[in-house]
Design a protein around this nucleic acid. Sequence first.
DNA 1: CGGCCGAGTGAACGATCGTTTAGAATTCTG
DNA 2: CAGAATTCTAAACGATCGTTCACTCGGCCG
Lengths: 219, 219
Amino acid sequence: MRSAGDDLTTRARIRDAALALFGAHGFDGTSVRAIAARAGVSAALVIHHYGSKDALRTACDTAIVDEIMGRKKSMLAEGDLATTMQRWLTDLVTFRPSLDYLARMIIDGGDAGQALFDQLVDRTEAMISQGVEDGVMKAPSDLRTTAVIVATHGLMPLVLERHIGRALGGLGLSGPGLSLDVVRRLTLPTLELYTHGLYADDSALSAARAALQERTPGP
Amino acid sequence: MRSAGDDLTTRARIRDAALALFGAHGFDGTSVRAIAARAGVSAALVIHHYGSKDALRTACDTAIVDEIMGRKKSMLAEGDLATTMQRWLTDLVTFRPSLDYLARMIIDGGDAGQALFDQLVDRTEAMISQGVEDGVMKAPSDLRTTAVIVATHGLMPLVLERHIGRALGGLGLSGPGLSLDVVRRLTLPTLELYTHGLYADDSALSAARAALQERTPGP
DNA sequence: CGGCCGAGTGAACGATCGTTTAGAATTCTG
DNA sequence: CAGAATTCTAAACGATCGTTCACTCGGCCG
């Protein structure tokens, strides 16, 4: 008899197969039989181990969340989220299933995806707060909203990886979507944007400020 | 007998029903019978009019693209894309089906979504070029990549609308996702970011520049 | 008026879906 | 070694899927 937490078993193979297929073709686009075939077992065994297809999805969710939060190896539980993502991006071939599944989890809007997004925003907000305190960042007029914007911007390479990869032409070694070249090419312009902005002056900003104030004239 | 271009017919009602359901539950999550029920017809009639479910999806794609590109009403065909989006955002309740479908079209990565994204990037690139020429924007070090970044940033409220709406707490009148309040709240911080950036100085930027140069020391 | 064609429907078909069941094979346990 | 528990499979079940078929109904044209 194997303990519940034991991995590298048939049970774990099924979960990994489900994770890869869910990430590649979506939940509805993946059949239990396809998962079973990829794991080299029968369809009935998949149900036997996880109870239902939905429960299997939940197992994949928690597995990914555990992996991204790194609860297993280190109890740091601190802002290592960015580090984890960075590590994933440098080894795109290995972690592509995880990245694809993660993107779909966020887009599908399930409970786990919501929790993940909210945590990401919270951490981003804390990061910006710390940056302002340390003097390396400017204080935004609306911290929460700015955190949402920065967080979503960070998710974009994940969610739209295929489009970005295609638009930047880098059909790299890791198939369609992001390649290491594309990630590298994104780095400088992104930092440029976050350092100098895009507009030459603040005329657009003050125009918008004026337009919004005239709509809500205040007490 | 009705002409092929005639709308407001049963055929158009079926397409609108499909558009709404595809946008709400996805292609795989929508059955032909559900579309038929929403349109008030039989499932067989849906197939009779469009040949297959896939062909119906294609019809929805072209309908949305026609609507967003505005080919019907005006032949301007110029940078009205931003105007269209702005008009949609001010009437979220009416255009929510279109917005939902559009978001799904882009993340699903079909041919129509690819074409749409590529056009968006091209127009963004042209817009930045013009902005630089007019002196209202700074010249980016990598125009194409910056266009991709700005374009994808603009798509984020569409793709992650539910997350953004939830994170900003504005459970408005138009259901979950974006509300007019949320859109308004996003305006100023976004322009702030595009005007002043987020970092207080260019230390992060120059550090990244140095790191990238040391990896590719040149010939 | 008679023939015809498109709109529209209800029933059914074959395929596939997630899941269940019965049982064989294997492993652990007393 | 006997027995219990676990792992795993083949087969089938009921539901639902997209699609087809046979058919009716109502205008239109010669």
